[in-house]
Design a binder for these strands. Structure first.
Lengths: 197, 197
DNA sequence: TCCTCAATTCGAGACGTTGCGTCTCGCCAA
DNA sequence: TTGGCGAGACGCAACGTCTCGAATTGAGGA
């Protein structure tokens, strides 16, 4: 069960080929679009065999998911900024910047679309991407609660639904990215203290 | 440009076949799932020829979009209820009921996914479905503004982004439907009057 | 130390299958 | 006479699997 039981005999996986495949997938998506992205095309562009791709990734969506993590730095700011408002702002700024990174929005659209079609990928996408993003935001809300900084009746889960709901709805249903006004409106909505002040 | 210029010569379109195709598409989607839904399968189930389907709908997604309108009553409550809160509640209750209607959530998932892949369908889906839903909610916000009932700094567009963002994020990224607690939390979020009270 | 063998990945591409969207046919209704 | 109808043949494209010989790596014997 441990790695010690598998001394890794035989030829090792080529890291160079792995990177070539991920890069080819990302570039091809921006060039021809996700529907016309094929495993065959990825392999050809990367100078690899089809079997090499199929050996390591179950679907083209999984290739793209890993390529996204490679291309765009997916770490989000969850550092303690002293106040709920400051941390929420940092998180939203990071998210907006990520969305604005070239090619990211189309790739996210494609991955979410694929997650609706393929139940297995849906699980991998949720565990490997969506839930990680949620966890980051919920950490901020929990810290605010411990700090006594959190608006009443606001739960981490609901805050995540609202924030990611807005972000994803913008990506999927509109063509608009998050701008400063959106971030300001969202912060105002979530940081109000009803019944106080 | 008017219908008078087309005296409708030749055999008329069969309404019976149209309904059979829409019903077959809706049922097949719930049975085999959207990815395995094919025009050939729809035609076979409906006892129609492939060409009959292709003649009237450009893609299977368009068939399903029309089938959705047929199966689930898509009208939303925009009647004047006297207050912003009452109208928002009625709208959210209607939306939650629609989502809970058998087969609606999977169909909505499929249509949104298809809209990410096909730019032409994307436009039809937006104009024929998404924007109509938005307009209904924005009507409510505008009436509240005229009534002096609207929270400060809340715009119809932003309210629509938040509400539909939450609904769609729930459909696409989670498996949870809107429940009463969600509706209550959303209403509280949107009806607070910061700086007043 | 050196050699041989098994294990594993690699690039390349052949293969059968599937569903696509178009086209054609004869029939039928307005 | 015009155009929708059911039925299905047709060529095309991409799928995912399989096979091939070469390259790389570790294990174990000489």
């Amino acid at each position: 069960m441990s790695s010690a039981t598998t001394p890794a005999r035989g030829r090792r996986r080529s890291e160079q080929t792995r990177l070539a495949i991920l890069t080819a997938a990302y570039e091809l998506t921006t060039e021809v679009g996700y529907p016309d992205l094929t495993i065959e095309g990825i392999a050809a562009r990367a100078g690899a065999g089809k079997q090499t791709v199929y050996r390591w990734w179950p679907t083209k969506a999984d290739v793209l998911l890993e390529a996204l993590a490679l291309k765009a730095d997916l770490k989000v700011s969850t550092a303690d900024q002293g106040s709920f408002e400051a941390e929420l702002d940092a998180f939203l700024q990071d998210s907006a910047a990520l969305m604005a990174f070239p090619g990211v929005a189309p790739v996210l659209r494609s991955l979410m679309a694929e997650a609706q079609r393929d139940a297995d990928f849906r699980r991998r996408f949720r565990d490997g991407f969506l839930l990680k993003r949620r966890a980051a935001l919920e950490t901020i809300v929990e810290r605010a609660a411990a700090r006594g900084d959190k608006p009443d009746r606001l739960t981490g889960a609901f805050a995540a639904d609202v924030v990611f709901g807005l972000i994803w709805y913008r990506i999927l249903a509109t063509e608009r990215l998050l701008d400063e006004d959106d971030i300001a409106a969202l912060e105002q909505l979530l940081t109000e203290h009803p019944g106080k002040e």
